[in-house]
Design a binder for these strands. Sequence first.
DNA 1: TGTTGCCTTGACACCGGCGGCAAGGTCTAC
DNA 2: GTAGACCTTGCCGCCGGTGTCAAGGCAACA
Lengths: 130, 130
Amino acid sequence: MLIGELAARAGTSTRTLRYYETHGLVRPRRSANGYRVYDEAELRVVHEIRALLAVGFDLADIRPFVACLRAGHSSGDVCPDSVAVLRRKLAEVDAYLDRLGGVRQQLREQLARAITYREERCLRTRRRPD
Amino acid sequence: MLIGELAARAGTSTRTLRYYETHGLVRPRRSANGYRVYDEAELRVVHEIRALLAVGFDLADIRPFVACLRAGHSSGDVCPDSVAVLRRKLAEVDAYLDRLGGVRQQLREQLARAITYREERCLRTRRRPD
DNA sequence: TGTTGCCTTGACACCGGCGGCAAGGTCTAC
DNA sequence: GTAGACCTTGCCGCCGGTGTCAAGGCAACA
């Protein structure tokens, strides 16, 4: 399978696949003319990468999952390094959820104050219109 | 007040103040020698900018708040455009909280599956150690 | 043999909020 | 007059995941 076919089947671009390669995530063989040649397993790898990216992982975080797949496991999740990343990411998400909850609270308060202010001004204006 | 003093008092850098200026958020006069000159009100403006940035706003979102302050209001929140931005941001934060909640759920499931897998493998290994 | 369509590497562009450096002007103090 | 502490504009770099273009090689079919 050449790069164009893999890109089409994985729903991404050749540019993206080459980028993953420079970051050590995808490892094609080379044919005699220098073309990248991928086997079927790489399709699975690319799907794993795309799925984790969609969740918010970056390429460095994804590396252990790919290594896990490549080590022959049916899922990229089950190796110790992957589990460590999952734990860390879960903690990050929890922390971010906390922070975002605070932001939400602050926004609601700002909004409430602003609207209160505008209502009060409206009432004053009615009593003494300009 | 020159740019260095404002930067120090606002807890930021001269580079940052010049950057805000290129984006139309801060408006210094110029002295005869070309130096930027800020009055006290600009300190308030810069504080508003920093506070909103810290919450996660970008500079474009912040513009109405600065305009509101500059229009003489004691708070940047109370003008219609600011309120509109607050509403939009609140909606964005809500949406992101939803999404992040989903991500968190997925991470927990992946983690649970991975750990279950490892425990099962561990039990098999005890029965038939390699 | 030419056209078409794939492939290769390399490099620039983007987004946002700056950091940091260079080359030069200005003001103050000694 | 000179040191040094300010100021000016302008430009490159960063991060991450691509899009996009250029210039060229290779394969297959008319």
